[in-house]
Design a protein around this nucleic acid. Structure first.
Length: 643
RNA sequence: GCUGCUGUAGCUCAGAGGUAGAGCACUCCCUUGGUAAGGGAGAGGUCGAGAGUUCAAUUCUCUCCAGCAGCACCA
């Protein structure tokens, strides 16, 4: 038998018979290591303890101490153990797939009866039984015909379909623990007992389409989370509770920012303080855009079908559009996008190459009939305000304009504390207008701009808009969640469709290139993200309510009003609270309402012309001269771009 | 849109085949109290909408609407 040399992480090498498994290697080192081992890395590949090694290689043996491998294996084995538990309890259930995801795993089942929350408890208990059995994990390599026949005989059609979809003709790997068997590329733990029995939890059950396609059957997906120990699981559950407390839908109600009604699903009723915050964002963006050379316009909300046919929306976007019925026998639609309106504005008059780039911005409210199941608070609505703009430029200006938009987006996000920004580049979809050649140029321009800006990005094939490829800017918030906000799209098509032209230096008419871009994206969504990011405690300049001046005794009421007037004169959103309540009560109520500054006023303050300042989140108070407070708060209320 | 769950007072939630309850909020009275709930009284609900079963439905059944979780879709 041939001999191979295995090199360990410390640089030492040892000879073994070819075909040796990491399990045997571990045993040759020590009994305790072979018991503790969970998997190996062989030449950089994650390796099962049972897989043979045929050639010289580097090898590292993992235990539960190695986080990356341990979590991967624990979650993966949990998926198998759960599938086995389900099939043991309900033998007629068909299994499909069960991958590892962030924090845990899921497994999709086909079963006539829905799983109930009580069922989840039952499954969890059965999983613990299986873990306690410490069943050895066994693996074999089968050829395809044998595997297919096996699953056909066992009535597992989804597995047969999976095998058919695996490319090539390579052999397939089968895994067992106990009598339960699954098709799996591995690796797995050595036995079920290596899964910590107290560090996993089944979270929820929901529908999911087979192979992610809405034309396919709906399966039942059970989600679970798993960690190395009970403490990590507990920390994760606590984090979820914290995230729930930040839910902007809950905070929006508690802080009296907005609400929804059944009569207008997906549309927002903004309350005064929520609307104030919204307007602060628009005012900020208006200043930033003006400084960047944009002009602001306003285009109609309802326009004739003919326009939407010209733009291509009627053919490509109609199922998402609200249509308007009138008495004049014309068909209208509410705008789902601002671009066609901006085309009409660009087309007014004759444009010279000297005019380009033309940058037309609008805080336009667009309406889109989104699928009912997609609606989600402010983050996914049916009517929303875009900080939308269209840039008309020449071929030569294209890359530079893309770069400018990119810089503007990053600068703006940074003002709001978002520095972890990911970019997605979505390329031509199946359903599209325009020639392949113009798509080549559009996609190329975006790539060039990203490369020149030194941005890293991920490409999503076929995910672009019907008129052009797009960049999407994804923000990562304080608790690690991603939100899609800004977008930049290159479009050669609409200018052609609308016969838009400018006069070149040599006097010919030529179609401009058009960029679609939004920075916040949807103002509504961005507001929701900010609420969650700050858990409702927004920075002072954005805070829906800024200052409450609260009386301690009613003899101070007149001075309270004077303080409020002084602050308002400085542009600070101040309100009086002279209700017949104790100061404790007022402090509690406004603290829960997330008001950043409470100014308490009693007779001492009246006599000294001071206020007692209490800031949200601070227990201590400070007595400060009224004019000093007004000046300090006015400074704090200044938006970041005006500082 | 699909699968599952949910819908009772402004909010958070109990409840039951015989036309409803708590806490907070609200109104009034007493209290003028120094930094996270002072005391008392009162008012408030076609039990999401429509149909069916029943002597009787808010409770059971069906349809619709909306919300929640996930999927699919998306800013």
């Amino acid at each position: 038998m041939a001999t191979i040399s295995l090199t360990f992480p410390d640089g030492n090498a040892r000879d073994y018979d070819a075909g040796v498994t990491p399990g045997e290697v571990a045993e040759s080192i020590s009994k305790s290591l072979s018991k503790k081992a969970i998997s190996a890395t062989v030449n950089g590949a994650h390796w099962d303890m049972q897989w043979p090694i045929d050639n010289d290689a580097s090898i590292a043996i993992h235990t539960l101490a190695d986080d990356a491998q341990a979590l991967e294996l624990i979650r993966h084995d949990c998926a198998h153990i759960m599938a086995r538990a389900v099939q043991e309890i309900w033998p007629d259930t068909k299994v499909t797939i069960g991958p590892v995801i962030k924090d845990g795993w899921y497994y999709d089942f086909d079963r006539a009866e829905p799983f109930t929350p009580e069922d989840l408890a039952l499954i969890e208990k059965k999983m613990k039984d299986i873990i306690n059995l410490r069943d050895p994990v066994r693996t074999e390599v089968w050829d395809r015909p044998r595997a297919i026949k096996h699953y056909e005989d066992n009535g597992e059609p989804y597995k047969v379909e999976l095998i058919d979809a695996i490319p090539g003709d390579e052999p397939l790997r089968m895994y067992w623990h106990g009598d339960w068997q699954d098709l799996c590329r591995g690796p797995h733990l050595q036995h079920t007992g290596q899964v910590p029995a107290d560090a996993f939890k089944l979270m929820s059950v929901a529908g999911a389409y087979w192979r992610g396609d809405s034309d396919n059957a709906m399966l039942q997906r059970i989600y679970g989370v798993a960690f190395k120990n009970r403490k990590d699981l507990q920390a994760h559950l606590t984090m979820l509770e914290e995230a729930a407390k930040r839910d902007h839908r809950k905070l929006g109600r508690e802080m009296d920012l907005f609400h929804f009604e059944e009569v207008a699903p997906g549309s927002i009723f903004w309350h005064p303080s929520g609307w104030r915050m919204f307007q602060s964002l628009i005012a900020y963006m208006r200043r930033r855009q003006e400084a960047a050379g944009y002009v602001e316009v306003n285009s109609p909300d309802i326009m004739d079908k003919a326009l939407w046919e010209l733009s291509g929306h009627w053919q490509n976007y109609r199922e998402n559009m609200f249509l308007a019925e009138t008495q004049d026998d014309r068909e209208y639609a509410l705008k789902p996008m601002n671009c066609p309106g901006h085309m009409m504005i660009f087309n007014q008059g004759i444009k010279s190459y000297r005019d380009l780039p033309v940058k037309i911005a609008e805080f336009g409210k667009v309406h889109r009939y989104e699928p009912s199941g997609a609606l989600h608070g402010l983050l996914r609505v049916r009517s929303f305000t875009q900080d939308d703009a269209h840039i008309y430029c020449t071929d030569e200006q294209l890359t530079e304009e893309c770069l400018k938009v990119n810089d503007l987006i990053l600068s703006i996000y940074s003002d709001f504390g978002f520095d972890d920004v990911h970019v997605k580049l979505s390329t031509r979809p199946e359903n599209r207008i325009g020639s392949d050649e113009s798509w080549d140029r559009s996609e190329g321009a975006l790539k060039t701009a990203l490369d020149q800006a030194g941005m890293s990005y991920t490409i999503f094939e076929g995910e672009g808009a019907f008129y052009g490829p797009k960049l999407e800017y994804v923000l990562r918030d304080a608790i690690g969640r991603d939100w899609q906000c800004g977008t930049l799209q290159v479009d050669y098509n609409l200018p052609e469709r609308f016969s838009s032209t400018y006069v070149t230096q040599s006097g010919e008419k030529r179609a401009p290139i058009m960029l679609h871009r939004a920075l916040f994206g949807s103002l509504e969504r961005f507001t929701g993200i900010l609420i969650e990011q700050h858990a409702g405690k927004l920075p002072f300049w954005l805070a829906p309510r800024q200052v409450v001046v609260a009386s301690i005794v009613s003899d101070a009421d007149a001075y309270v009003h004077e303080v409020v007037a002084t602050l308002r004169a400085k542009g600070i959103q101040a309100e009086a609270d002279i209700r017949n309540e104790k100061i404790n009560y007022k402090v509690r109520e406004h603290s829960l309402g997330k008001v950043p500054v409470i100014l308490a006023v009693g007779m001492k303050e009246v006599e000294d012309r001071t206020v007692t300042v209490r800031k949200l989140g601070e227990k201590s108070t400070a007595v400060v001269d009224l004019n000093t407070v007004a000046t300090e708060l006015a400074a704090e209320a200044t938006p970041p771009d005006l500082k």
